[in-house]
Amino acid sequence: MEPITLLTGKAAVLDRANVDTDQIIPKQFLKRIERSGFGQFLFYNWRFDETGREREDFELNRPEYEGASILIAGENFGCGSSREHAPWSLLDYGFKVVIAPSFADIFHQNCLKNGILPITLSHSDIQSLVRQTEIQNQVTVNLPEQTVIGESGRPAAFDIHPYWKEMLINGWDEISITLRYDSEIQAFEEASAI
């Protein structure tokens, strides 16, 4: 997993509530057995029409959002299916940070496991962030400081569990950390006779 510390990039705004993982990556693309290459299918049914042409009215197809690495989304982003193909497709498309007023629990967890930083900000902080990025569309995310800032104005602070912060900053493999607790796991199994 790629470490995240400081990131400055373009933000794309997808102002829709309850975007489910079926929209982020439709089911016809879940049959592959690889982890890579899902970016081309991100938001497939919203991005492309029946003939495979880009839909002009879909937010992410706007030319000014090309190369965006930060997604600003609506409430309850990533609800529904637990498919990790959703963060895989966001990451492969180029998004490293998702900012939203709230996230669905499983999606939130899946982001953290893949080196995507999910940031929860209030509606008003998101609105002022969008206003602060109107000229160059530049957002800076500082994970060690736990702040997000636009081109101007004051930084907005966000919360993150210290465990996940450390994991993301270092890009650590969680399994190798857990395996250090092998004796505790074994003791638990013996004590519970399982």
């Binding site: 899946n110 496991k113 969680e174 399994i175 857990t178 199994e189």
Partner: peptide, 20 residues
């Protein structure tokens, strides 16, 4: 509860999960 594929791998390897 439902989990993603990274957590599937974590449970396969360790039979545990870090959960809040």
């Amino acid at each position: 509860f439902g989990i993603g594929t990274s957590e599937v791998e974590h449970v396969l390897a360790t039979q545990t999960l870090w959960q809040t």
